[in-house]
Amino acid sequence: MIQEETNVGAAETARRARFGALPDRVRLEDTVEERPATAPDPARDAYNEDEWLVRYAL
């Protein structure tokens, strides 16, 4: 009988050591990673006003 109480007491102590406290809170800033979906392409955003003249008028 005493052996069972010791086993139960040891199991309870181990359980409390493992699950006795809640984990630390994680901030929202630590859970989100922001990065662009694609790499920026400088040639794509370069606009030349006179390009349409070369393509369509000449």
Rank of each mutant, 00 (worst) to 15 (best):
N48C: 04
P42Y: 01
N7E: 07
A39V: 12
D24M: 06
D41V: 05
Y47A: 07
A21R: 12
A57D: 09
A10T: 15
E5Q: 12
T6K: 14
Y47P: 00
P23G: 07
A10M: 12
A46Q: 14
D30E: 15
P23N: 08
R15Y: 13
E5N: 12
P36D: 14
R55A: 14
L22R: 11
A17Q: 09
V8F: 13
E33K: 09
T13K: 13
E51S: 05
A37T: 15
L58S: 10
A11T: 02
R18P: 00
E34G: 01
V8M: 06
G9Y: 06
R15S: 10
R55M: 05
N48L: 06
A11H: 06
R44A: 15
D24C: 02
E51Y: 07
V32H: 04
N7Q: 13
P42E: 02
R18T: 11
P42A: 03
T38L: 15
Y47T: 07
D45K: 11
M1S: 12
E49Y: 02
R16D: 05
M1I: 08
E49D: 09
P36W: 15
E5C: 03
P23C: 07
F19W: 13
R35W: 07
I2F: 13
E4Q: 10
E29Q: 07
A14G: 03
P40E: 12
A39Y: 04
F19L: 09
R35V: 04
T13R: 11
R25E: 08
E49H: 04
V8D: 10
A10Y: 06
R35E: 06
L22W: 08
D50G: 08
G9C: 06
E33P: 00
A46E: 14
A39I: 10
Q3I: 00
D30R: 04
E51C: 01
T6W: 04
R18N: 04
A39F: 01
R35M: 13
V8P: 01
T6N: 10
P42G: 03
A39H: 05
N7D: 02
A46T: 15
R35D: 02
R18K: 11
A46F: 13
A37G: 08
L53K: 08
I2M: 12
T6L: 06
A21C: 07
A21V: 10
D45H: 10
A10W: 04
G9D: 05
N7P: 00
A14L: 14
Y56T: 07
Q3V: 02
Y47N: 04
E29K: 05
R25K: 12
T38V: 15
E49C: 01
R35H: 11
